[in-house]
Design a protein around this nucleic acid. Structure first.
Lengths: 339, 339
DNA sequence: GGCTGGCACTCCGCATGAGTGAGTGCCAGT
DNA sequence: ACTGGCACTCACTCATGCGGAGTGCCAGCC
């Protein structure tokens, strides 16, 4: 059975009211608050249908209605009008992000900003190494048999690893090695580098070969195999806000949020600049079935170098949250584009 | 009035029982569990005295007794025997920390290890820049007018900042500048560097002076002014563990834990290798008055480069927690000493 | 003098029960 | 197709009652 317009209006009203009050909403209160032009009885009939179709449910007989996950889904897909950010909000974003000194700082500020704007838990993935390019590789001699390998990505991200050499290596050779490596690798996508590193092993000046061998192992690890992507988190205190929201269910959620693996899954397949909304059940992660996640990819221009998003109760202000996440992602993307 | 031995025994028993059961402990249960050689009535008399002195209190008339902050303090100072870590636990620590690849990884593992061992919230401060020495300063040309300044500290910590040059600078000059800076600064304590940087401005080859001027600003910021010390956190889920522990009070605590400034205060004046225990009230931070903090400094040998500790309900297993924090701090200290 | 057994008392926690009110489902009427 | 009316359900609140754990105090005992 297709839902006519009024039934959709009723559903929208229920969602909006419930999000605002956090209490089951009844037919009478509905007609008063939203100026539906019909009587409570009519609304009740509509509600009965909506319940039959699984969009809303009653916590118990003789209580008001509460949206189901399916109800929220319909709301998000078809009923919510996007709420553009006000000029003031945009300025607030700018003010907050202004004066970030390095990438770490940008990510930190971003995640706190998101948490503050949405009053929810915010998660930001550091620009992924695998999706960016090599800007420069630096070799710093720490002793005669130890090097520090520093990799600088075009996103501003810097990673470093220690390399133990099989033999001593004079300073000139280090410089030579540095030059040869950079010639070959600078500017490449990180995902394209493995064959190039292999090739380097043959191409490099013979005397440097032993050092290059040791180096290549670490290099490959740093460039590709390093799965451990970093994640920043903020606003966990917001989980303890709503009166009866998560009391009791809070622990597994906090636990899940501490597992980086879990968080990374949230951004598994972020699409370029499109928003993704996961509602309750739809979430693959067991412990987060009671929450919704609004996420998106971000990066300079149309390139996606990482994900960001927020997590909160299924009963959340979707239009507002979506708008905030989108605005922040765009802003940070622009920031990265500028360098 | 001085407390005789038996009264102290009673206090110890009360603390231990309360920590174990989380329920007010009565006189009868006490004599049964701990083989005190006296009757419940006697214990009651002792309790009355202990209460008068402020070491314990009754949640309400006709309930058992609960230790006060003052009671815990006495317990920690004079009544608790230190509980050395078992061989198995030591091995567990080693296994957990084994295979850490860089400083970031070490800190991450440490904080999770602490949270797991103590079943509490763990906090670890990254090795403080201001307490360590410069190992090497690297200059990486990003373009003709931009340098990346990378500082490597002897703790393994790496910081980087962008430098905008007033003029183009050929590669040879960069190398020259790098050499001169390192000659002057490598090996110095970070706190000693400001005058040396000033001196460098005069000593440096004249052609390099404009570049050096731009550089020195950033350098000083990186070396000294950078207050923002980094902090790692884990185990917040443990706050939601105890049945009625923090329900309701949880939010301010989570909020406090997200404020880096607050966390740093916890380690304000960590003493070399001595444990510090803050119980409830003693904590300066308003929102953490319901919690206790066990912390210590850590670093290679007797040098302190940072703090670590755990935070939990005042009702915590102090001997166990203290032992765990100490063991982990020592282990990490040794790790840093090895390089 | 310090310890003990006994006893009256307090008060929390829990269960029971009645009253209230918001909300519903259904039906007959327009 | 909508509305008004009506009986019904059921969570929530409050008062009442009861049992039990625990205390404080006192008189007696070693």
């Amino acid at each position: 059975m297709a839902l006519d317009d009024r039934k959709l209006d009723v559903l929208r009203a229920i969602v909006e009211d419930y999000v605002a009050t956090q209490e089951p909403v009844g037919s009478k209160a509905l007609v008063e608050r939203h100026h539906l032009r019909v009587s409570p009885a009519t609304v009740r009939n509509d509600m009965a249908v909506l319940e039959e179709e699984g969009y809303i449910r009653q916590p118990h007989t003789s209580a008001g209605r509460v949206p189901t996950d399916r109800g929220y889904r319909l709301f998000v897909d078809r009923l919510s009008r996007v709420k553009p950010m006000s000029q003031a909000e945009r300025r607030a974003i700018e003010r907050f992000m202004l004066g970030a000194v390095d990438l770490d700082d940008v990510v930190h500020r971003t995640v706190r900003l998101l948490a503050q704007l949405t009053r929810q838990v915010a998660v930001v993935q550091y620009p992924s190494l695998s999706r960016s390019r090599v800007r420069h590789l630096e070799l710093v001699p720490l002793s005669t048999t130890r090097l520090m390998l520093v990799m600088i990505a075009d996103t501003g991200r810097v990673d470093q690893r220690l390399v133990e050499l099989p033999d001593t290596l004079p300073a000139d050779d280090v410089a030579d090695l540095r030059r040869q490596i950079n010639e070959k690798l600078a500017g490449c996508r990180l995902t394209d580098t493995p064959p190039l590193v292999e090739a380097l092993l043959d191409e490099v000046t013979p005397t440097l070969r032993p050092a290059m061998t040791a180096l290549s192992t670490v290099l490959l690890e740093t460039l590709v195999e390093r799965k451990e992507e970093r994640i920043a988190l903020a606003g966990t205190a917001n989980l303890a806000r709503g009166p009866m929201d998560f009391q009791g269910t809070l622990r597994p959620i906090l636990e899940a949020l501490e597992e980086e693996v879990v968080l990374l899954k949230l951004f598994g397949e972020v699409e370029p600049s499109s928003m993704r909304v996961l509602i309750g059940d739809e979430n693959e992660i067991e412990d987060l079935r009671a929450t919704s996640v609004v996420s998106t990819g971000y990066g300079p221009g149309t390139i996606v170098v990482g994900g960001m998003g927020v997590l909160g109760p299924t009963r959340m202000d979707y239009p507002g949250t979506i708008a905030a996440v989108r605005a922040v992602a765009r802003y940070v993307g622009d920031l990265l584009a500028q360098g």
